[in-house]
């Protein structure tokens, strides 16, 4: 009868979860009970046999065979994993895409009226019939002069760039332009101009 109770303790002992009091009880009992002693021994042997079951190894090409059965990554997945692996290029591509978009939009949204941007509007002479903006001889324009949908004829002085979009810049012999004079007619030139402007805005230029 006591042995039945001890059987529970034996299992607690094997689980390593027996408390000190129960452990002493079990040890005392086993000193006198050969049957419980044997019971424990047989259990320990059974465990040892199972533990010593030699550890077998899987065939060497196992990993390769698992991979052969994996679903092949789809084109989309491969593309998205490429994007994940190249965050900088991805950011650059997105930036370029948006930039091109907005620049193109600027180009296509233009209208055909003559537009002038200058800080010295009063000094300019505008010839509406010929669609020409004239910087008269002897006048000085501070800063850039940008004209859209018309030509620019410079006879005086411009302390900045002269740009004609969809038009021409004509420099008279008396003209003096501190910056550059350029005519922009094609969309690619327009894009280039915009990109250059970004560069100019970003890089501090000291006079």
């Amino acid at each position: 009868m006591e042995c039945r109770e001890m059987s529970v303790l034996i299992h607690e002992f094997l689980d390593g979860e027996i408390d000190e009091l129960s452990n002493q009880k079990l040890q005392t009992h086993m000193r006198t009970c050969a049957s419980c002693r044997q019971h424990l021994q047989e259990l320990q042997r059974a465990i040892a046999f199972v533990q010593s079951a030699s550890h077998i190894q899987v065939s060497p090409d196992f990993t390769a065979r698992v991979f052969a059965q994996l679903p092949t990554p789809t084109r989309k997945k491969r593309f998205s994993s490429w994007l994940r692996n190249h965050p900088f290029l991805t950011a650059a591509a997105v930036f370029l895409f948006l930039m091109t978009g907005s620049t193109m939009a600027n180009w296509y949204e233009r209208d055909n009226t003559l537009q002038i941007a200058s800080s010295n509007m009063d000094k300019l002479k505008i010839d509406r019939t010929r669609n020409v903006v004239v910087v008269p001889a002897g006048t000085t324009i501070d800063g850039d002069l940008v004209v859209r949908n018309g030509n620019v004829e410079v006879q005086g002085e411009v302390r900045g760039n002269v740009v004609a979009i969809e038009g021409k810049v004509v420099l008279a012999s008396t003209a003096h332009v501190a910056g550059s004079a350029e005519s922009i007619e094609a969309i690619f030139e327009w894009i280039w101009y915009e990109v250059k402007n970004i560069g100019n805005d970003l890089l501090p230029v000291f006079p």
């Binding site: 042995c3 049957s35 047989e42 042997r45």
Partner: peptide, 23 residues
């Protein structure tokens, strides 16, 4: 509950490290 004694179980008590024994 297992009963019955045999000599094998007595012998096995000398076994120090069963994992090392030849399987």
């Amino acid at each position: 509950p297992g009963q019955g004694m045999d000599w094998y179980s007595r012998l096995s008590s000398n076994e120090k490290n069963p994992a090392d024994s030849l399987v």
